[in-house]
Nucleic acid binder design. Structure first.
Length: 532
RNA sequence: UCCCUUGUAGCUCAGUCGGUAGAGCGGGUGGCUGUUAACCACUAGGUCGGCAGUUCGAGUCUGUCCGGGGGAGCCA
């Protein structure tokens, strides 16, 4: 297989070289160190990332690959955007980034040499600006500078797209995240957002990796729904009715009732706030399933932890109780942390240095330690003990009230100094579908709380007993007619099952140390903000 | 939605007691033989978020609206 794929690559090299035959580039001997080499084109290409260019751009080497190569006499081709430039009389240093790594490749043009003079015409020198896109040809050499092992001695540089310095909004200096949010179409070109984007991608793949290894099926739950999944929370309505002329149910009356029979779905429809109920359907057939997709909440939330559109991961397991649920949640989180610590090292070191000092060690500790597991009643006890010892709370802890943000912080940062799973909450403060305990007062819900952030996972064992579920729905004022299919799961072959939801952006916040959730999603949607 | 805070040059900010505006960075020009937050010199750049008011006079005081940030609630 390996042999076949290298044959395939060679043939692509050959095809592409036809286009450049007759060009001035000369063949070079096989260079030392890693890196594939083509006798036909004269270009040395990438090693670890070489295959990612094979389909259309066989000569180019990605920056990440260049930085891993040893110096050699053969010519290389790189493409990207200029991040910074420094120049003296004859020497021009500029750094180019193509998103493949945090680090840039430094290009050097020496105008005192013939090669340097011909690298770029004088009239184009000023076009080598921060932000401009360029194509570079040169030779990889050992760098005399301290900050990089290798650099590119440029024999030719072509400016593909200019970025006029007087109008380009990004400067080669640190910008505030608030400012970058206003230019979200350009912020991926910064170190921080490049790193976030790569970590986000890595985590998404790690999510699938974990569940696929464990035998879960990925279920594509609907984005449009006609049921309100939790009986609470504002939803975005989806309609094709003309908003300036809404058809009334009874044209003769002055009532505001709307004739939804004339709407697209024949009844009110919304953007989903959770795929859980749909996931339960598939869990009671395929046993282990998960969802991973966008979720929408129309709440007027203006905090650093809330988005109107975010991505959520919701596993759902049949024949699983709250104990199993906790085991999976903990193993899942640890898998994600391990993945980012091992595969995202370069980016994590950036976050450790610039965003959240000590985060690598903190996450490493979480991977190695057992999550604390306490009941809600124990949590209240801990908080009351803390209050007795002098901790000032804005909200006094009391059994029956929900845990406040300050309480979650106290538990994770002061008492347990790490992730804490809190279970068995009073039924009044949790959703109708959570399984009622034998005490009749608490439900088998669980929240995973982490330092800095608070709740990152919310889940529960589900109520699988038809009568109990019906009673809970009645208490919550939910109509059985809307949830008939959900109740059917309890009527036919019901089974204990459990699941949880992980906010993907909150995970990224936790892992990177980024303080505002708007900075870990490419295009944040929040109240009064849907630009880009 | 509520509480606090903030809005001044392209960016980050200073601006005292009410007297018509300043720095650093970025930009431009020139200089510099290896820079890497490059350095040195010169230089351009402002309807002080909008509207209304108090005052001889408002960046500064008052009201109001809009935007940003932090916190709370809702949650993931």
């Amino acid at each position: 297989m390996k042999f076949l794929s290298s044959l395939f690559q060679e043939s692509l090299h050959f095809l592409s070289s036809l286009a450049t035959l007759g060009s001035k580039h000369l063949d070079h001997p096989q260079p030392p160190g890693p890196g594939k080499y083509s006798k036909l084109t004269g270009f040395r290409t990438g090693d670890t990332l070489g295959s990612m260019t094979q389909h259309f751009d066989t000569q180019r080497t990605m920056v990440r690959s260049l930085l891993q190569q040893s110096p050699g006499p053969s010519r290389v081709l790189a493409k990207g955007w200029i991040r910074t430039k420094r120049e003296s009389k004859d020497l021009i240093f500029f750094e180019v980034n193509d998103g493949s790594s945090m680090a840039n490749i430094q290009g050097v043009i020496d105008r005192s040499t013939a090669e340097g003079k011909s690298a770029i015409v004088d009239s184009d020198l000023h076009r080598l600006q921060n932000g401009a896109s360029v194509i570079l040809e040169g030779v990889l050499v050992a760098s005399p500078g301290q900050k990089q092992a290798v650099e590119l001695h440029i024999s030719k540089v072509q400016v593909v797209g200019d970025a006029p310095a007087d109008t380009y909004p990004m400067q080669k200096k640190r910008h505030s995240f608030e400012y970058l949010r206003e230019i979200a179409h350009l912020r991926p070109r910064t170190n921080t957002f490049g790193a976030i984007t790569r970590v986000r991608n890595l985590l998404a793949m790690a999510v699938h990796e974990f569940f696929q290894q464990e035998g879960y099926c990925w279920i594509h739950t609907p984005i449009i729904t006609a049921s309100d999944a939790e009986g609470a929370g504002e939803m975005f309505q989806v309609t094709t009715l003309p908003l300036d002329k809404i058809p009334k149910a009874n044209p003769q009356s002055s009532e505001q009732g709307i004739d939804y029979s004339r709407d697209f779905f024949g009844k009110p429809a919304f953007l989903t706030v959770s795929g859980q109920l749909n996931a339960e359907i598939f869990a009671t057939a395929l046993d282990r399933v998960y969802t991973f997709g966008p979720t929408f909440r129309a709440e007027n939330s203006n905090t650093s932890r809330h988005l109107a559109e975010f991505w959520m991961i919701e596993p759902e397991m049949a024949f699983c109780d709250i104990q199993g649920n906790m085991e999976i949640a903990e193993a899942f989180l640890k898998h994600l942390l391990r993945a980012v610590l091992s595969k995202g090292r370069e980016d994590m070191e950036f976050f450790d240095q610039r965003i959240q000092p000590g985060i690598i060690e903190q996450l490493t500790q979480v991977v190695e330690s057992k999550f604390h597991r306490i009941t809600y009643t124990q949590a209240i006890q801990d908080l009351e003990d803390g209050a007795k010892k002098g901790t000032q709370f804005d909200y006094l802890p009391s059994w029956g009230a929900d845990l406040q943000s300050e309480h979650e912080k106290f538990l994770t940062e002061i008492v347990y100094k790490g992730p804490v799973i809190v279970t068995d909450y009073p039924k009044e403060i949790k959703a109708f579908y959570m399984k009622l305990n034998d005490d009749g007062k608490t439900v088998r819900g669980m929240d995973v709380l982490v330092p800095r952030l608070g709740e990152i996972i919310g889940g529960s064992e589900r109520e699988e007993r038809l009568e109990v579920l019906q009673a809970r729905m009645a208490e919550s004022g939910l109509a059985e007619s809307v949830y008939w299919w959900y109740l059917d799961l309890r009527r036919f072959g019901t089974v204990p099952h459990a699941g949880f939801g992980l906010g993907f952006e909150r995970l990224i916040q936790y892992v990177t140390g980024m303080q505002n959730i708007r900075d870990v999603i490419p295009f944040p949607r929040t109240p009064k903000n849907a630009e880009f």
